[in-house]
Nucleic acid binder design. Structure first.
Lengths: 342, 342
DNA sequence: GGCGAAAGTGGTAGCGCTACCATTCCGCAG
DNA sequence: CTGCGGAATGGTAGCGCTACCACTTTCGCC
């Protein structure tokens, strides 16, 4: 009976096996893999041959322990099913797939406490970089980020006081632009409908309010919100609520496109003409908005690009050249469509 | 000037610091943290106090290295933005959030090669378990899974030959049930519209075909597919294509709900009465289907539950009691709605 | 009262890798 | 011919933790 090579370990090849086979020192194998230019052409070839033959794959845990730095990006988002964050995450994954970095994804469920817990957990891994959604971290979280000892990118929003770097856009401006568009289109009793009032939603609401007040149209009864998680069916219910409160409602700025779609369907069902009787504006501009009937005006945001930029900034910082511009505003675009075309 | 405690490391407390402060051996601290019942009440308290005071968090890398087992679940899905997989992943995250296990999520982009690469990468970490979407792994991937040395759960589908364990349902039966429902409702020229024909879509198509042939209604011209990624706008275009090919089309089984929604909107736009002129059935039953106008019949699948069950099975296997039933079929439900109610 | 088992605790030796420093070898200036 | 700098390579000593085994103490039982 063959004794296992060691009491532990799965018996897979280690760097020492490769070194032996290639007839070099272990450290040279390590270098050949990480900084090939520091090893002579010839040894590099021999080592590569040994690696291929043995099917050697470095153990990331041993690597992280020895170098006190894991090749991991920690990513924290409040939701995995919300299409908006899914796209940011997709941008991050796509940008990192060709690099040696792995991704540690955490779901905070919109909870500050959960965010602290995950930050603590991720920090213990000494990640190469951290990407977190939002700019409203708790003081504890902020401290954890500041002491993380790695590049930090806050995404989705812009603000005056980055922990380190930021990529996003102004939700306040987005909310204002959406509302101003409705006002310009001639709507007057414009409601705000929003679920899951996270800080970004609050800022969109603030933008709505600013625009309405500037036009002398603001009325608190026009605002309908709930802490419940956003969904299409919720949009439908909330339009009903809003109409019950304000029967003369002639426009809605929806906190996001799910809500907007629910509102649109409810209008169909209740035979409310869109855009004639009620105008609708969404937020995020999901693919379906331009296909809907009528197509729905929305604020297009650049989620995928936010993910890509965040990674690019982090990688630059890791490489030692932190960008001069620490806050990048990717802006947004108002997409005018049939739902406000009257 | 104070010399750093060691040449490397961030200066954060180690298990030795805790042991010193608590006046015990390092190994006892380790045990108190992992198997508290094996340490006396009193020491446990002392150790906990030292941990709290120092803010000690175990280094997962060192842990993984020493125990040859990382507290990581590797999860492989073909897409991060597809709501279906997002829900499976959410189920996995929610089930694991209270456990010590982290999650390593990989996006295969529906590519077998990418799956192999990621499996190789994940394997090097000696994960505690692997959860992979689908049952159509390449031979290489299958071998990697078999040799992973940890529980493996294939999710989303059921099949006769699990690598280890499986949770899902029969896409073929789902496709058949959807089609039979349309036939029973009196539709005759029933089309199949599907994008991104991955293996699961292929099986739904096979189910459609089986039902159509059994009823003597099959006609290859009724089938419209494309390799392009599914989206709502694609659904709209594909209905146009389908109608151009078969103007007498009176029903559609859509490969998924995004497509179904696009089809529904195109019907609105072209003033095609639903369900009178055309009946529509979707697949997955996203929240929006019951809110749509008219509401859309769909096959409800239990994505979140699949994620939860996969974790439950893996955890059981890790704990040493692999379930007797290695393949769990969670089934599906046909949700009859207005879009086929005639 | 002696003995073995069991419970509680600790020491030692790694896990697989890399930081740090030492060594070798070469070319070239003095 | 010596000395020196730089490039290429290697040895040693850990990184922070846990597996394995040894030791001590307590307790039950014949």
């Amino acid at each position: 009976m063959i004794k296992p090579r060691s009491r532990r370990g799965g018996g897979r090849p280690t760097i020492a096996d490769v070194a032996r086979k290639a007839g070099v020192g272990a450290i040279t194998v390590s270098r050949a893999l990480r900084e090939p230019e520091r090893v002579s052409e010839e040894l590099r070839r021999q080592i590569q041959a040994a690696v291929d033959e043995l099917g050697y794959v470095p153990d990331p845990n041993a690597r992280a322990l020895a170098s006190a730095r894991a090749e991991v990006f920690g990513v924290l988002v409040p939701s995995l099913t919300n299409n908006v964050f899914a796209e940011v995450v997709r941008g991050i994954y796509d940008s990192l797939s060709a690099s040696p970095f792995r991704i540690q994804l955490g779901n905070t469920h919109y909870s500050g406490l959960e965010e602290e817990r995950l930050l603590q957990l991720f920090g213990s891994q000494r990640p190469a970089a951290l990407i977190v959604a939002g700019i409203d971290q708790t003081p504890t979280s902020r401290k954890l980020l500041e002491n993380a000892g790695c590049p930090v990118v806050q995404v989705m929003e812009t603000g005056p006081d980055p922990v380190d770097m930021m990529v996003g856009f102004s939700h306040l401006d987005g909310g204002r632009a959406a509302t101003e568009h409705l006002i310009e289109a001639g709507y007057r009793r414009i409601g705000f409908i929003g679920a899951r009032m996270d800080p970004r939603s609050q800022r969109r609401l603030a933008g709505y309010r600013a625009a309405m007040e500037a036009a002398g149209l603001f009325d608190p009864r026009l605002v309908t919100t709930t802490p419940v998680l956003s969904s299409v069916s919720l949009g439908r219910e909330m339009l009903r609520d809003a109409l019950a409160k304000v029967p003369t409602l002639d426009g809605v700025f929806c906190n996001n496109d799910d809500i907007a779609l629910g509102v649109l369907f409810e209008c169909h069902r209740a035979s409310i003409a869109v855009p004639k009787t009620i105008g609708i504006v969404g937020f995020n501009d999901l693919d379906m908005m331009q296909v809907a009937f009528p197509s729905v005006t929305s604020i297009r945001t650049h989620r995928y690009e936010i993910g890509r930029r965040a990674v690019a900034m982090a990688l630059a910082a890791i490489a030692g050249n932190r960008p001069d511009q620490r806050v990048i505003d990717l802006g947004f675009e108002l997409k005018r469509r049939e739902s406000t075309d009257r």
